[in-house]
Amino acid sequence: MAAGKPVVMVTLVSSDGQSFQLLEEAALLSAMVRDTIQIGQGRGPAGIPIRNITGQTLSMVVVYCNKHYTAAAAADGDDAADEEKKVANKKQLREWDEQFINLEQDKLYDILVAANNLGIDGLVDLCCWRFADMMKGKSASEIRVKLGIRDDFTSEQRAQIEKDSPWVWSRTT
């Protein structure tokens, strides 16, 4: 944050009534907050109500916004052509992201939905990579169990799949 800039805080209020105060600039990572402030709302003491997102999830989102805002501000601060440092900082942030998103499926889901509703692109991207990572190396039947998907192939379709790619269904014994 540049010196002399006024510090503006904004309050986000979760669906269960918990308040989170953060720098407005950090909250602006969210397109939803950006839109709200642009139409001249949300700066009052009542804050911005965030519907459908609980305090537990919103607190995680706030941590993400603070971290990414701080990292971006730091990167702006040392605009000297110190490439090595920039690369190192980027790597550090990526490692932080990986740690941050190393969550159970249910929590990850909540954060993905929250990030999507709030329009935080970076966080949506991060959640989707993590979900994709969880699917890697799993068989079709494991995925079905994990995600509660019904095997809705007809017997003809199954026969077709078997014909197209026999390794999916059959075994060599």
Partner: peptide, 13 residues
């Protein structure tokens, strides 16, 4: 991994 996921369900396929 995507290749194997084609056998999950009709929508995915």
């Amino acid at each position: 991994a995507v290749v194997g996921l084609r056998a999950v369900c009709r929508t995915w396929r």
